[in-house]
Nucleic acid binder design. Structure first.
Length: 581
RNA sequence: GCCGUCGUAGCUUAGCGGUAAAGCACGUCAUUGGUAAUGACGAGACCAAGGGUUCGAUCCCCUUCGACGGCUCCA
């Protein structure tokens, strides 16, 4: 049996065991569904009285007890009538049975020990023997809607972790703890990058001097890459009359997410949830000759979305989002070339941080054209351009059927971080619809008005989200060029402070961000603090250094550089920053 | 939004019916100084906010706000 299948069967069997345990302890409970998942399994129940995490050990104990009598799963086929009789009081199971009948599939029951469940199969042959001691653990209780739909009843979901061996489970738990240590919400506070205020509101991060510095450095880097390709900066107001979004189609699609503003004169305005409609109006300010295209507008700016409060989380999901947005207005024939330029920018940018990228090709779903603007033929036309690009780059993209934006298909880029997790980051979108809505055009060689297309291109996507990913990817150890403090200078005693100040000035003149840790704390503690802030280089300045004129430097990786002259170190540092290491 | 857990000084936490405690951080002073020193003194919290129960509430109940984990894995 394949390893993967075995693990799935193990987890699925445990889901059954969980249901068996729960039903024995709480006989009035209605069990619903219980699949295996990425790190274990879950089962959704409707309890008659609420349970909490505190009840898990009891359930887990019961599971182990029951397991002793679980030697084999037996399957038996039932008619719909028989099946419904068995689950007479369980409307969830009955709904499932109707569905199975509707699909023309067979109804099967699986029994193990004294527990029988509606199931399509996929279990261990002998649970008692195959489930290793200590290889599973009930993890937590959470709410989940029946079938994931918030219109349905909320059920109680019990999550369990499960692996083939106890060692693997322990390793997984240890990994989760490592991820927790890197949690950007904690590191962001420790490194003094951002904060939240209850008065300002949830999902609205406030940026400290250090955090702002990092944001600006990132944005400058994106700009540096864009500049080469002829982009120009633009700026727009953060609100607009409703009319703009009525024209673009966003009012319909986004109205639940919009922060709306009513003026004293009775007009309705909205905070912008995206920038493209504003940018179209910059393009639309005058008539263009084909000779002047493409027009490339870049604009790093905040957008505002009224996300559901329960969806908010640290910087990953916020209500004020800084997009490093850009829009290219060009002729259809130029789209591919422009697309490739952005492709280059995206790859250069992520390479610097050591992320590897995967691409997802998000297309329209022909079965649901009501979700999109415009004719299907036009969608096929623009999607073929993206396909050509993927072929040319010899990249096999993940299939994103139905994942397109409502105005056009896109390539989404997923960054794989140092813990192997995948995050959606950059996106390039090709849009024939908004130019249509706003009647954007140019005059072509024949003197005829020609419809143009529009490219949407965000490199970081959202600075907030990108930073949350970068913080966890690096565990706060930003590359030197991005570190708020690049060099800590630590004078051993007060009489070394003058030397420290001289050194500080030297750094300052070369635009190196240095910080002096003055002698009010003990030496050891100051070094510790500097390292705690993930400072790339810590220079300890004492008698030894003052006499020799050389420096002793502690590197962030734990190594030490001794007897290096200030000039030499400065050169090394400048080179490192230049190369963005 | 919904379900669950939670909200005590800047941070981490203790206390849990009789108006609050510790460590770190902070301030002053002293003694120190080569990898998280020591001592003394000091300042800092109407225990998230509002309402209720009670002779009395940080502790019990309700509401609001905020944080975290879930809510696309289908019998």
């Amino acid at each position: 049996m394949e390893q993967k299948e075995k693990l799935h069967n193990l987890r699925h069997s445990l889901a059954h065991l969980l249901a068996a345990g729960v039903l024995e302890l709480y006989p009035d409970t209605k069990n619903t569904i219980g699949p295996s998942i990425e790190d274990g399994f879950y089962y959704d129940f409707e309890f008659t009285s609420p349970i909490s995490d505190k009840d898990l050990p009891k359930i887990e104990k019961k599971m182990r007890e029951i397991l002793k009598s679980w030697r084999a799963f037996e399957s038996i086929e039932k008619t719909a009538k028989e099946a419904k009789e068995h689950f007479d009081k369980n409307e969830y199971k009955k709904e499932l049975i109707d569905e199975i009948v509707g699909k023309g599939e067979k109804i099967t029951f699986y029994t193990c020990g004294k527990f029988t469940d509606l199931c399509r199969g996929g279990h261990l042959e002998n649970p008692k023997e195959e489930i290793a001691d200590g290889s599973f653990k009930l993890d937590r209780v959470a709410g989940a809607y029946w079938r994931g739909d918030e219109k349905n009843k909320m059920l109680t979901r019990i999550y369990g972790l499960a692996f083939e061996t106890k060692e693997e489970l322990e390793k997984y738990i240890a990994q989760k703890e490592e991820a927790k240590k890197r949690d950007h919400k904690k590191l962001g506070k420790d490194l003094d990058l951002f904060t939240f205020s209850e008065l300002v509101g949830s999902g609205l991060p406030l940026w400290t001097p250090k955090g702002t510095l990092v944001r600006n450095l990132l944005d400058d880097y994106v700009w540096e890459l864009r500049k080469k390709f002829g982009y120009e900066k633009v700026e727009i107001p953060h609100i607009t009359k409703k009319d703009l979004y009525l024209t673009s189609g966003h009012w319909d699609k986004f109205k639940d997410d919009l922060f709306r503003i009513n003026t004293r004169e009775g007009h309705e305005f909205a905070m912008k949830p995206m920038n493209c409609p504003h940018h179209t109006q910059i393009y639309a300010r005058r008539a263009w000759s084909y000779k002047e295209l493409p027009q490339r507008y870049a604009n790093t700016t905040m957008v505002y979305r009224d996300e559901q409060s329960g969806e908010l989380s640290g910087l990953s999901r916020v209500r004020s989002i800084t997009q490093d947005d850009a829009h290219v207005f060009c002729r259809m024939g130029q789209a591919k070339e422009e697309f490739l330029k952005i492709w280059d920018i995206v790859h250069s940018f992520y390479e610097v941080f050591g992320f590897s990228l995967q691409v997802r090709f998000s297309t329209h779903d022909p079965a649901h054209m009501e979700k999109y603007l415009g004719e299907e033929a036009r969608w096929q036309q623009v999607e073929s351009i993206l396909k050509e690009i993927l072929d040319e780059k010899k990249v096999k993209a993940i299939d994103g059927l139905g994942e397109a934006a409502f105005y056009g298909p896109k390539l989404d880029f997923m960054a794989v971080d140092s813990l192997g997790r995948e995050w959606q980051v950059a996106t390039i979108q090709l849009d024939m619809n908004m130019p249509e809505s706003f009647d954007l055009s140019c005059t072509n060689e024949k003197g005829v008005k020609e419809r143009i297309v529009m490219l949407h291109a965000a490199i970081m996507g959202s600075i907030e989200r990108f930073l949350s990913i970068l913080i966890e990817h690096t565990a706060g150890n930003f590359p030197t060029w991005l570190s708020p403090t690049q060099v800590a200078i630590i004078p051993v005693r007060e009489n070394h402070e003058d030397e420290a100040k001289k050194l500080f000035e030297t750094f300052k003149q070369s635009s190196i961000r240095a910080e002096i840790f003055s002698a009010d704390d003990s030496l050891g503690k100051r070094i510790h603090n500097a390292k705690d802030m993930k400072t790339p280089y810590v220079i300890v300045l004492g008698d030894k250094e003052v006499t020799s004129g050389n420096l002793t430097i502690e590197n962030r990786d734990g190594t030490k550089t001794e007897n290096i002259s200030a000039e030499e170190f400065l050169e090394k540092l400048k080179k490192e920053i230049e190369e963005k290491k």
